Simulated scan of single mutants.
Amino acid sequence: MSDTAAGWYDDGSGTMRWWDGTAWTERTQPPPPPQPGLGGFIAQAQADAVAGAQPRPAQAGMSYVVLQVVLKEKFFGSGSGNLTELERAINAQASLGYRLHTITTASSGSTGFGGGDRIQATLVFEKLV
């Protein structure tokens, strides 16, 4: 189950695909042109983070799916929710018949916009045969 609202998201192939709130649909459209300036950069980073966390099957003929999940440490307080976010991504792929093969993380080392360090988790899932 995903907490991501229904809407158009990049499905990982560069194509915008309709996410109905629980699964990808067959509805697609070309991606919108990039927005200029800092606002466009931030919007694209947010869209990439949301799309990366969505479950998706491997492309035809492939046995692996690679997802990137952008995590953020809370600036104030505790309870970032990062483990829950990773758990959701892993369980969503498991429901599609994949198991986690590899996970790596990288930290930006800066507080970024709005504080809190950003961590990128790259997850590789393998199709169960």
Rank of each mutant, 00 (worst) to 15 (best):
R99Y: 14
G112S: 07
G112P: 08
L100Q: 04
A49S: 10
R17Y: 02
S78L: 08
A49E: 01
G61D: 05
G61T: 00
E126A: 11
L96S: 04
R88V: 12
S108H: 12
G40R: 00
I103E: 13
H101Q: 14
T84Y: 13
G81T: 03
Q46H: 10
S107Q: 12
D3R: 08
Y9D: 03
G61P: 02
D11A: 10
S107K: 11
V129H: 15
L100E: 05
E73I: 00
V66N: 14
A6V: 04
V69M: 01
V50W: 13
T111M: 12
A106K: 12
G7Y: 06
S2L: 01
S107N: 12
G39F: 04
A47E: 10
P33N: 03
A45H: 06
A23D: 11
G21I: 00
D117C: 09
A53V: 06
A5T: 12
I90N: 06
G37A: 04
R27D: 15
A58E: 01
P32E: 01
A47Q: 10
V65P: 15
T104G: 14
H101T: 09
D48S: 10
A53K: 10
G7E: 02
P55W: 02
I103D: 10
G97R: 09
K72L: 06
G77I: 00
D10M: 01
A49G: 08
I103L: 15
N82E: 11
G97Y: 08
W24N: 01
G115Q: 02
A43Y: 03
A121Y: 06
R118K: 13
G109Y: 05
Q54K: 12
N82M: 15
A92F: 11
L123M: 08
D10G: 06
N91D: 15
A53M: 11
Q44A: 15
G14V: 02
L86W: 07
E126L: 11
Q44C: 07
Q59N: 13
P34V: 06
Q54D: 02
L128C: 13
E73Y: 04
A43F: 04
L67I: 05
L67V: 07
W19S: 07
Q35G: 15
A58W: 04
D11G: 12
A51L: 00
Q120W: 14
G114S: 03
P31L: 03
A51F: 01
L67H: 13
D20G: 04
S80Y: 03
E87V: 09
A60F: 07
P32W: 00
D3F: 12
Q59A: 13
Y98M: 04
T104L: 14
H101E: 11
G12R: 07
P33C: 02
F76D: 06
T104W: 14
W18Y: 13
T84V: 07
T105W: 14
G7V: 06
L71D: 02
A5W: 04
P55S: 04
